[in-house]
Design a protein around this nucleic acid. Structure first.
Lengths: 184, 184
DNA sequence: GCGAAATGGTAGGATATAAAACGATCTCGA
DNA sequence: TCGAGATCGTTTTATATCCTACCATTTCGC
């Protein structure tokens, strides 16, 4: 898949390179050989090629984009969707608890919830017992939106499951959970 | 792990809840029962609990943070590290090729490379053959930095591999690669 | 050759995210 | 009951990221 051994010194232009096409051989004396930019298909990843972390990052990006494609008409990306789901399943949840379950810093929630509130999908209520915190709820519109999004998310999951394969699914999930628990 | 069935209506405070502690039972008539914010340990993830996409996101976050912890003294996070590695292994690579190998949009590279150039880790060279593009190279300092970072990254990989397990490592990697290729 | 289309890189606008510091409020121990 | 410290949410600051549009340059079709 990638070049073997160490970095290719690339001191010589191979004959028949696509770049040679419309280039009349210059008459001037030996021109210094210049390196054409590497084509994307011929990149040496080095150790990255064998590293889990790198591929975890790329896989997450791919998954994210697949999800976003399926839900773009609602303008809700995975992060927001998880918030709606967590609020819907846990009416009255606090922002701190929400941020932990969502795996994101609590300061991230301030603008996100402001947006969801502005869109009338979520409401916040001060409680008299602890006036520092809010309780979060879905509005009826929020519930409807969550239902719609859940349908799309299911399709996304089906895509992922087809790629992962039925046989490996449980094992794969278990490994992900171990990483979540173990690295933190 | 999470509450069974549909959302818990949470209409009743359970006796012995931690919140009851220093609360002298109010003498006033039946106080309206208020919902304390849910503790983080008792969150219903709903369908999220079974979804690969959600856990992929969290696993990626965990991995990222583990890496960042090991390399924080160099102020280089996974994205920058991958850039250094890719440039180091592919001297003369163009920004577009780099962005593809790195799985990020090319416009993301402009500020990233400006930073790496400012720190004298990377140099860019216009080439006469195609004056639109640059060739990227590591400086000696960039190479030294890459070597240092590679050591830390190896430790991070060892952590991941211990979590994933020797037996599952190859399978796990293969699945990640399928997701990268298949969803895109 | 020439003009249209593609390509490499940058700029601007928008969103997502984290860390640190902060004010308000609550809890705990003595 | 009081004060130190913890907790909740926000603000501020700094990155990272994408998308769209754009400019300069190159390639392609004819």
């Amino acid at each position: 898949m990638h070049r073997a051994g160490s970095a290719n010194p690339r001191n010589v232009r191979t004959a028949g390179s696509p770049r040679m096409r419309a280039k009349p051989a210059p008459r001037a004396a030996r021109r210094k050989v210049r390196l054409p930019p590497l084509p994307a298909s011929d990149i040496d990843l080095g150790p990255l090629a064998g590293w889990l972390g790198f591929h975890l990052r790329l896989a997450q990006s791919s998954s994210f984009q697949s999800f976003a494609r399926l839900t773009q008409e609602f303008d809700v990306r995975p992060g927001r969707f998880a918030l709606l789901m967590l609020i819907g399943r846990n009416p009255g949840i606090s922002q701190t608890a929400l941020s932990k379950a969502n795996g994101r810093d609590k300061s991230t929630l301030t603008p996100a919830l402001a947006d969801l509130t502005r869109r009338r999908l979520v409401t916040r209520r001060r409680i008299s017992e602890d006036r520092r915190s809010y309780q979060l709820f879905l509005t009826p519109a929020g519930k409807a939106m969550l239902d719609e999004l859940t349908e799309r998310a299911k399709r996304h999951e089906e895509i992922l499951e087809r790629i992962v394969g039925k046989a490996d699914r449980a094992r794969f999930m278990e490994i992900l959970k171990r990483i979540i628990a173990g690295v933190a």
